Computed example of a mutant assay.
Amino acid sequence: MYAREFLVVVFGILTCVKSDCNVVSKSQWGGLEPVSVSYLPRPVDLVIIQHTVSSFCKTDAKCKTQAQNLQSYFMDQLHYSDMGSSFLVGGNGKIYEGAGWLHEGAHTYGYNKRSIGISFMGNFNNDTPTEAMLQAVKDLLKCGVDNGHLTADYHLVGHKQLIATESPGSKLYAKIRSWPHYLEDASILKK
């Protein structure tokens, strides 16, 4: 009797953690489960904003396909155990589950064990992030703090502040620099 009640509670907690913050789950977008996982210590104090340098998607159907293509690239071409990003952001203003809140991603060498990587789908040297995309990420970050995934004083940086890359693209980078948790001097972050 107690074992059954315990399993129901554990299942409820795992379901809540997996689907919280209005994130489109892997099962909803047709993603594959990871081959293996490493868990992040929580709460996390670093968020890295990136772009995928792929096609920009505007519809649910195209964003689902884009998420599937990105996961296939990471798993089939790069032989990673899962998609590199923690979350993907579609031009439709929806957030798609990648490695998620709990699992270590493979997005920024030297920082994966302590950060969440959020990738905007598109090339934001050319594309302009929509207000829906920006608001979706702001809402995700607030929810991450509220649910204990992120520290209240987390730092937010652009991918290019940590490694030699153009990511997250000039148009997206210009937007995130005005966000409250943006960290101008990323040199204080230690690998």
Score class of each variant (00 low, 15 high):
H155I: 09
Q135D: 14
H155V: 11
S115A: 13
D82P: 03
W101E: 02
A99W: 00
N123K: 11
L88W: 02
H149T: 04
E104D: 06
L156H: 10
K142C: 03
V157G: 02
I118G: 12
E131Q: 15
M133N: 09
V157F: 00
S81W: 07
D82W: 02
G90E: 00
A164P: 07
N126D: 15
G100P: 02
H149W: 14
K160D: 15
G98Y: 00
V89I: 14
T128P: 10
T151C: 10
V89S: 09
A136Q: 09
P129F: 04
T128Y: 12
L140N: 01
L88C: 07
D127I: 01
G148W: 07
L140T: 04
V89W: 00
L162P: 05
E131Y: 11
I163S: 10
G148P: 08
S81C: 12
H149D: 10
E166D: 15
N92T: 04
S72R: 15
N123P: 05
K113P: 03
L134W: 06
S85A: 15
F124C: 05
K64S: 07
R114H: 13
L162I: 07
Q66R: 12
G98L: 04
Q66K: 13
H103M: 15
Y154W: 06
M83E: 05
L162Q: 07
S119G: 11
G148D: 10
K64P: 02
L156P: 10
G144T: 06
G110F: 02
A106L: 12
D146Y: 07
A136G: 14
T65V: 11
M133D: 06
E166C: 05
S85P: 06
Y80K: 11
H149I: 03
Q68V: 13
N112D: 00
T165K: 02
G84A: 06
E104P: 00
M133P: 09
I95T: 07
N125R: 12
Y80E: 11
G100V: 10
R114I: 08
K64Q: 10
F120Y: 11
S119P: 08
P129Q: 09
A164K: 15
D127S: 10
Q68E: 08
T130H: 05
I118F: 03
F87H: 04
S119E: 04
S86T: 08
Q77Y: 11
K142I: 01
I95M: 07
F120M: 08
I116A: 00
K160E: 14
K64D: 07
S72I: 10
Q161V: 06
K142Y: 09
S72T: 14
